[in-house]
Amino acid sequence: MTKKDLIVKLQKQLKVYTHKDIAYAVNIIFDSMTDALNRGDRIEIRGFGNFTIRERKSRMGRNPKSGVEVKLEKRKTPFFKTGKELRLMVNKNGL
């Protein structure tokens, strides 16, 4: 499912809104989450999961093609921890 499919499903489910309004709302949701992570904020969605920022230390890396050593600067990367409800949902249907 892509963002587009999500918008279509959402509009079918909620009916009262136009595709444009729903698309706008979905973009606001993910933009506001991106903004929060940018501020260094964590995101907690109960039943879904938490997004946090993890720091990666600077280290020496290697270009896998040429073998040349390069220095990788320390950087921030988003990390997602699945919430309990979703974790059980994902696992249950499969087994």
Partner: peptide, 13 residues
């Protein structure tokens, strides 16, 4: 609804 739809979709694999 956004999070519910995402959850259902993931629950289906």
């Amino acid at each position: 609804s956004v999070f519910d739809i995402i959850k259902d979709s993931l629950a289906n694999g």
